[in-house]
Design a binder for these strands. Structure first.
Lengths: 177, 177
DNA sequence: AGCTACATGTAACGAGTTACATGATTAT
DNA sequence: ATAATCATGTAACTCGTTACATGTAGCT
C-alpha cells in the first residue's frame, strides 16, 4: 500500500487536510508521487480506520469543516518499518516508448510531432523544478535533514526531466534523417 | 487502454503467443512496459473479442495448443489512431523517493543501505541494456526503421538507469556527511 | 526426486481513473 | 454572470498484483 505510505510520509513532515494533500500530489509532490483527490480521500479514510492518522476537525464558516490529519505514533512506526524494508524499482510504463516502437506503422512526421510535443512538456516541467530548487535548496549543505531530503527529491525530478528532453532530441534527430 | 496498445505494438513487429509476450514484458521489453502473464492473457482475450488480434491455433504434442496471435488490419488501424493522439507523461510513483522524503524518521544508515541496494540494482540493469545495445544497435544509422526504433527504446533504458545510479550516488553523498 | 521451461488459464483483491454531486467565497 | 478556489465526498470502472490450478518435457 504505497499510496498509504506516501500520505503518511507527507503528513510526517506537516499535518494537512485531504484537500491540501490532493493539491500537493497533483503538483509539488509530483516529482515523486502522483495521486488524485479521489484516491487520497479513500486512502485517508482507510488510514483513519487503521489508526495511522487522526483527523482534527476544524469548523469553518460557510464551508465544510476542514479535517486536518495528523500522523499518529503507530503511523510513524508503520512508516519506519516500511522504510527499512527493501523496495523494488517502479515498473516502467511509457506510452511514448510504445509509440516509438510501433513508429514504423505511421509516417515519420507523426512521430516527430509527438516527440516535439513531449519535449516541450518536459522542458516546462524542468524549469518549474529548477525554480523550486532555486527557492528552497540554496546552500543545501547547511539545511536541516528534512529540507535536504526534500531537495534530493527535487534533484531527482530535475535529472529525470532533463533526461527526457535529451532523449527526445536524440530520437528526433535519428528519425528525421 | 495502454496495455492493449502495447501488446498490439509488440504484435505489429512479430506475431507471438501469450507466453512469448509475457516473457518479453518481464524482460526485454521492460525498458518501456512491464506486465505480468495474467494481465497479458486477460488483455489478449479482450483484444480478440474486439477483433484487434486473431489467434492461430498451433497444435503441439504433449503440450497445450499454442495460440499464435496476429494483429489484424483493424488492430493496426487502431494503433495508428492511438499513435497520432497526444499522450501525457506517465505519472511518477517512486517508493524510493518517498522513503528519502521521510528519511528524517529513521537513522541515516537505514536510508544509506537502501540507496546502496538500489544503486546496485540499477547498475546491473544498466549493464544488461548496454549488452543488448552492443548486440543489436551497432551502426544504428544503417539499420531498418523498426530496428532503429527498437534501439531508441534501449537508449532510453540506458539513460534512465544511469540517471538512477548517479542520483543514488549523489543522495548517498549528501546524506552521509 | 526436484527444478526449469513450455503453455494455458481462473479468482480475488488492491490501486488508479473518470465522472458526478454539493455548496459557499472570491476574483475577473 | 462566470470561473476559480476551498472543501468534502460517492459510484462505477479499468488496470495491476498475488495466489492458485493443470500438465508435459527435459535436465541435473
Amino acid at each position: 500500500m504505497a499510496l498509504g505510505h506516501t500520505i503518511l510520509a507527507a503528513l510526517s513532515v506537516e499535518s494537512m487536510s485531504g484537500y491540501d494533500l490532493a493539491k500537493k500530489f497533483a503538483d509539488k509532490n509530483g516529482c515523486y508521487w502522483r495521486a488524485t483527490q479521489q484516491q487520497i480521500y479513500r486512502e485517508l479514510a482507510k488510514l483513519e480506520d487503521e489508526s495511522m492518522v487522526i483527523p482534527e476537525t476544524i469548523p469553518q464558516e460557510g464551508r465544510p469543516d476542514k479535517k486536518l490529519y495528523h500522523i499518529t505514533d503507530s503511523g510513524k512506526e508503520n512508516l519506519r518499518q516500511w522504510i527499512a524494508q527493501p523496495s523494488e524499482p517502479t515498473p516502467i510504463r511509457e506510452d511514448l516508448l510504445v509509440k516509438v516502437l510501433a513508429g514504423h506503422l505511421v509516417s515519420r512526421p507523426v512521430i516527430l510531432k509527438e516527440l516535439e510535443r513531449r519535449r516541450q512538456i518536459h522542458i516546462e516541467q524542468l524549469s518549474t523544478y529548477k525554480e523550486w530548487y532555486q527557492n528552497c535548496c540554496q546552500n543545501v549543505a547547511e539545511l536541516s535533514l528534512p529540507e535536504q531530503c526534500r531537495c534530493l527529491t527535487l534533484r531527482r525530478g530535475i535529472r529525470y526531466e532533463s533526461e527526457w528532453v535529451s532523449w527526445c532530441e536524440e530520437a528526433m534527430q535519428m528519425l528525421s534523417e
